[in-house]
Design a binder for these strands. Sequence first.
DNA 1: CGCATCCTTGAGGGCCATCAAAATGCGTGG
DNA 2: CCACGCATTTTGATGGCCCTCAAGGATGCG
Lengths: 251, 251
Amino acid sequence: MGRLRRSMDEDTKTTVENLIDNSEWIDGGERLLTRGGVYEHSTILIEGFMLRTLDEGDNDIKGRRRCAVSFHVPGDFIDLHCFALKRLDHNLDTVGRVKVGYVPHDALTSVMVDDPHLTRILWASSLLDAAMHREWIMKLEQLTTPKRLAHIFAEIGYRLELVGLGDEDGFDTDLRQNALADMAGATPVHINRALKILRTDGIADFRRGRIDIPDIPRLYAYASFTSDYLHAEGDFALDNDFAMDDPTLSP
Amino acid sequence: MGRLRRSMDEDTKTTVENLIDNSEWIDGGERLLTRGGVYEHSTILIEGFMLRTLDEGDNDIKGRRRCAVSFHVPGDFIDLHCFALKRLDHNLDTVGRVKVGYVPHDALTSVMVDDPHLTRILWASSLLDAAMHREWIMKLEQLTTPKRLAHIFAEIGYRLELVGLGDEDGFDTDLRQNALADMAGATPVHINRALKILRTDGIADFRRGRIDIPDIPRLYAYASFTSDYLHAEGDFALDNDFAMDDPTLSP
DNA sequence: CGCATCCTTGAGGGCCATCAAAATGCGTGG
DNA sequence: CCACGCATTTTGATGGCCCTCAAGGATGCG
C-alpha cells in the first residue's frame, strides 16, 4: 500500500487510515503473524521493517531454515492475504522494533460492498506482491550473491524513498547478515564474503546497523535494478485516475 | 481459477463462464500477451499449457534469456493482473496449441460493483499466483536442479488432477528441455543431466512429449512437494462457504 | 569485564555454467 | 520408402560460485 500511496487521492488516503482500528509496537525478532493462522484483522506496517517468510523443511526437525520471500517498509498493507484467503500461508517477522496498525476484516468487507474504487486499489496492492515475487524469482536465477544483495539494497532504498523515508547516502537498518542470508538465499558465511566484495568495489558498504551507498545509479546498474515491477513510476505507474476512469466505478 | 473451481458453487461457475466473450485457438510457441501491453480483456486458459515469463536482461541485446515464473493449466484465469494493474508486467507464452477465452474488462467492472462474493473469489485467485511464486522462491533457494524439476512435475500433475485432467502414470506435454530450463532456472545442458538422474533414480521419466511418473508419493517426497500452497485441499483449502459466511457479502 | 551476538577468514568439495561437438528423433519432399 | 534438414537431446572437459566445517576476532551490553 505504501507503494500505492501515490495512486491515491487525499480522500482515499483518509479512508484507508480510518480503517485502522488500533495500533501497537512490537519488538524486533518477533513473529507477528504465523503461517496457518486465521485472523480477524489485516495489518498495516506503520513504522519499521518486516520480512515475509517461509520456514524451509516443514516437517523436518533439523534443517529448519528461514526463507524470506519479500520485505516490507512503512505504509505497506502487509496481509490482505488473510482477508481474501482466510488462512495465512506464510509468516510475517519483525526486524527491529515495529509499529503496526490493525484493520478489522469487517471494515474490509464493507469496503468491498460499498467502495469498488478502493477495492480495486487494494486488489492492485495485493497484486504488487506477486509482481515483486516474480522479479525476485528472475533475479535469483540470474544474479550471483553480491548482485542479489545489491538488488535488495536498491529495492529497499527505492521503496523507502517512495514513502518519503529516503536518504541520499544509504539507510539505517536493523538487518543483520543472518537476515540478509535469509533474504538472498545464501549462507551467512557467503553473505559475509559477498558484502566484502560490494565494499571493495565501492557499490555498498554494509556495517551493523547502516548501509552506505556512495553511488545509487552505479548500484542500480550493478544489480540490474529497474523499478518497473514496483509500478510506482514511469510507464507502469498506477496513476490516480486509473480506477476512477471508469464511470461505473463511482456509483 | 481452475484451482478455485472447487471453492465455487454451480451458480458461480456459470456466472464465470458467462463472462467469457469469445474464444480462440492459438499455436504453440506464441507470445499471447506481452509485457507492457494494455488490454481491454482478461484471459482464461481453456485448453493447453502456458508459461508466465519475464525476459532477462531487459536492455541487453544479447543474453536475452527467458525466465518462466509460473505455468498454467486449463481453467486458470491467467491475467486478472491487467484488469487491476492496467499494464501487464510480464508475458504469457503458449506451450503447444492452446484454447483461450476472453473476458471484457467491462464485465469484470460490473462484477466488482454488483457481486462482492465473486469479486472476493477473483481476488483470492490472484493471490494464489503470489502464493505459488513464494513457494517457488523457496524451492529455488533450497533445491538442486533434479529436485526442482521433480517439484515442477509434481505441481503440474497435481494441478491437472485438480481440474479433472489427471493421469495416474504421468502426463503428456508439449514441454521441451529448453522450456524446462526456463522454468527451473538452469541451462538446457544441465537440465538434460538432471533428467537423466531422475530417470536413473526412478523418480520420473521425461521423453519428448511425455512424462512418466512411476510412484507419485515418491516423487512428492523427493521434491519436498506439499500441496498446501495451492490452497486446494486440507487446512488451507478455500471452502465454498467461505466468502458466503459473511452476511454482509450477500446484499 | 565477561558473555552473547555478530562478524570474519581459511580449506576442501559439490553443483552448475560454459564451450564444444556429436547423436538422435521428426517431418517433409522426392 | 528413403533422404535430407532441422530441432532436440546427449555427452565430455574445464572452471567458477557457493556450501560445509571449523576456528578466531570484533562489538556491545549488563
